[in-house]
Amino acid sequence: MSTVLKISELEVDFQINGVITNTPLRGINIEIKAGKTLGIVGETGCGKTLTATAIMGLLPSSAVQRGQIEFADHGVINKSEMAAIRGSEITMIFQNPQSAFNPIFTIGAQLTMVAQRRGISDIKAILVARLESVGLRDPRRVLESYPHELSGGMLQRAMIAMALLSTPTLLIADEPTTALDATIGDQVLTLIATLQKREGFAMLFISHDVTAVAKVSDEIAVIYAGRVVETGPAHDVMSSPQHPYTRGLLGAIPSAEKARGTLVTIPGNVPSVLTNIKGCAFAERCSARIDKCDQEPPIVEIGNRSVACWVVKS
């Protein structure tokens, strides 16, 4: 199976006048196969969205990027090459559909602009068909509507339709269900999975919601403080987490089955992006910490899993 996206040693610094102010991405290594979904899970500030932004070539000018991004048959691509395929071969949907659409244009006008840029002919018919394919039964009404006239679920469907206008090779979905009610979010997840099965695009699915990530992903990458700490098949990561952070995160999910007051907690907080991190970023919160943890941890291969940790054994 061919690889659609391969990111190696991606690092991002923010600099002011050549001075590094912080390094929010410190080593992202991920790979997505054709037609498959990689889920990125992590907490606030760990670098999930920044990773997507870097892939799309949309980092601000104060950011300095290292490492390489290979995409489909383009090989290694730089920022300007990415600009040429952004929105056609790679498309993206965002967390908050209300703010992703421009409130003063109708959905139809905005979709038409995208379709024109993609050089699509017979725009009206294509838009109607696309909106139907995302489960919007009354496409004409949707096209004539302003964003505030549609529900969050309908808007998210419209945004999915926009992202799929050009039949992309890779869809990046950044927290696509976070702003939606649980049941509506689930419908959107089911829709995305159905469309993916039918149209065969690969997907990078980013969320803080472990359950949502587990539901749609083939592979999962857990990010902590700008670094991938564990990757592997979704089922394996969920059922037998290896990295102490992954174990803590999964143990923190409340449920009726767990006795009250006994949730696994990770002491302290996610380090601020301004923290100067040496060695393993999780070490200061880790109960399994050893002396060596102040050095950069090795990547340990455990079966089909990769774990960045001094403590776990292969």
């Binding site: 907490e43 472990v210 409340p254 007051g261 949730l263 696994v264 907690t265």
Partner: peptide
């Protein structure tokens, strides 16, 4: 965040 939520839930129960 999930890990902080767990701290607060434990605190509330205590």
């Amino acid at each position: 965040d999930l890990s902080v939520q767990a701290q607060i839930l434990n605190l509330l129960e205590e």
